[in-house]
Design a protein around this nucleic acid. Structure first.
Lengths: 194, 194
DNA sequence: CAGAAAAACAAACGACTGTTTGCTTTATAC
DNA sequence: GTATAAAGCAAACAGTCGTTTGTTTTTCTG
């Protein structure tokens, strides 16, 4: 009955594998990234990846989970620094966009790789993303808005435009993630003044 | 010197190939769709596709071109029915979203397949999409807005949120493409009233 | 230091990839 | 009606795909 369990070895390269997988999934997408690409980037042989993950889909899910964790963490920390509803939403929008465009690869994979493109893991990916987006639903619910304002539309419009910005954003430009998120919030906020 | 040029045959299946390619590219994305998938869907052998297209990338470009043509056509027709700037932009937004979510496969491929995912054709795809998006820049430029309003942000926010709706829109729901586009416009428009 | 588990190597499996080549069928044009 | 070009078939090319299996190396644990 002695289940001999041992701690991971100190020289293990799981973290490196995840980092390189995140980078490649973000750069080329899921289907266009091969297990051989990831293995080569991590300096190991293709078959070795299967010691850590039983399938390519599980590797993606692991990256996805870390991405959601990172964004959630940043957004929650940013929101906690404010008290007024609109300022909390603005802080969330800024943190969300900075996580996507500045933090690195994990976060971007979450909105770059579409769940429907990974049939065997779509359900798991959607569950992760839905849980995160509920954060924004709560922030929008707390806004002081005229009764006729469509809160769902407001939330979807904000998140949609933020997420889409990955496709046109250029690092060199003068528009920072923070400035973009703020201008979007301003466009929405002005509309809701009595 | 007699260059014997002949008309395409009446039984040719080029249109069918394009239709099936558009459907598959929309459903599974570019990388996950194989030439064999397309050939099988069109009821022919893989090699036969190369009579019509010299490479998979060219097949995508052909679908893309038709998609841009369709959206442009619908948006221009819708805009022409109105005179006041905000109504013209709203008509464009509605037509854009209906083209994506109702018209069919060609239009959706244009925003579903990312140019960067098709290295050999990225430049061609981007040129097509930029030309189309200039339509919206003109419509936004014509809006009567306060001097401090950021017109670029407004355009990017509108198009971004419209394009992102492909990811959450469900046909069964009560929200039609028309209603979604109108609620987005309303959120922006109210903000700009003096 | 000995034993065991962790982590990776080495090599291959069959299936699938985009594409090419040569040949055949068939509608069109004169 | 017959030459001719359009369209597609049939079969294969070399390469890549995700994954499996057996073995080896290396670190940790007692």
């Amino acid at each position: 009955m002695s289940e001999t369990q041992r701690l991971p070895r100190s020289d293990n390269r799981l973290k490196l594998v995840l980092d390189e997988a995140a980078r490649l999934f973000r750069e080329k997408g899921y289907a266009a990234t091969s297990m051989r690409d990831i293995a080569a980037a991590a300096g190991m042989l293709p078959g070795s990846l299967y010691y850590h993950f039983t399938a390519k889909e599980d590797l993606l899910v692991a990256v996805y989970e870390e991405g959601v964790r990172l964004i959630t963490e940043k957004v929650q920390a940013a929101v906690a620094r404010h008290e007024r509803p609109w300022e909390r939403l603005e802080a969330a929008a800024v943190a969300h966009l900075e996580a996507l465009l500045k933090t690195g690869d994990y976060a971007l994979v979450v909105i770059r790789v579409l769940p429907r493109d990974v049939p065997g893991a779509a359900a798991r990916l959607l569950r992760l993303r839905d849980r995160y987006e509920r954060l924004f639903a709560e922030l929008v619910a707390a806004l002081p808005l005229p009764a006729e304002t469509d809160r769902d539309a407001l939330r979807l419009m904000l998140l949609g435009s933020l997420n889409w910005s990955q496709h046109w954003f250029r690092e060199d430009g003068r528009a920072t993630p923070r400035a973009i998120a703020r201008s979007y919030i301003r466009l929405l906020r002005e509309a809701q003044k009595p």
